[in-house]
Amino acid sequence: MNTEAVAKRLAELCRKGEYEQAQRELYAQDAVSIEMPGAPAGALGDAQGLEAIYEKGRQFAAMVEAIHAHDVSEPVVAGDWFSVAMAMDVTFKGRGRTQMAEIGVYRVRGGKVVSEQFFYDMG
């Protein structure tokens, strides 16, 4: 699968809320997931390896009380890289409702995502 096909499939699955399915289908076993440097205390950190990435997703899901809306943009592809903008209106357990927006930047090698990195405002 080339980068554009991986990007389109990832966006399709994320729009359906099927994040772990996207990882199972599209990620390399040794993929890495990188959060913003200086993320606030309590934020999920970086993860190395597919099992750790699954766990990171499960930890995020466990913090969520309700997802009111979410949106995933069309991917922008450049060589082995692509990016997707994501927005979410979510209520976190014990923290209330918030609007989140981020850019995910992904690298593809051998038809699989080998890295993802997220950029967002920390406020």
Rank of each mutant, 00 (worst) to 15 (best):
14 C>G: 07
66 A>E: 14
66 A>H: 12
117 Q>D: 06
25 E>A: 03
28 A>V: 11
17 G>N: 08
74 E>Y: 00
43 A>P: 00
102 E>Y: 10
40 P>E: 06
92 F>W: 07
84 V>W: 00
79 G>T: 08
16 K>N: 04
88 M>G: 07
33 S>E: 09
66 A>L: 03
14 C>H: 12
50 L>N: 03
43 A>M: 11
67 I>H: 06
88 M>V: 14
85 A>P: 00
12 E>P: 01
66 A>W: 01
86 M>E: 08
51 E>H: 07
38 G>L: 08
61 A>E: 11
46 D>C: 04
48 Q>L: 04
19 Y>Q: 12
95 R>W: 09
114 V>M: 07
107 R>M: 05
112 K>I: 01
42 G>E: 06
76 V>W: 13
117 Q>Y: 01
37 P>R: 13
119 F>K: 04
38 G>V: 08
54 Y>A: 00
32 V>N: 05
49 G>P: 02
72 V>K: 05
36 M>T: 11
12 E>N: 04
29 Q>C: 03
54 Y>N: 02
98 T>V: 13
106 Y>K: 10
53 I>R: 00
65 E>V: 08
48 Q>M: 05
84 V>T: 04
42 G>W: 09
88 M>C: 15
109 R>T: 12
117 Q>E: 14
58 R>F: 01
50 L>R: 14
99 Q>Y: 13
36 M>D: 02
25 E>G: 01
74 E>T: 13
112 K>D: 06
89 D>H: 08
9 R>A: 04
38 G>E: 06
105 V>A: 11
103 I>Y: 02
93 K>S: 10
84 V>G: 04
70 H>T: 09
69 A>G: 15
110 G>I: 09
106 Y>W: 13
12 E>G: 06
121 D>G: 15
5 A>G: 11
51 E>S: 11
43 A>G: 02
66 A>F: 08
103 I>H: 02
89 D>K: 03
48 Q>R: 13
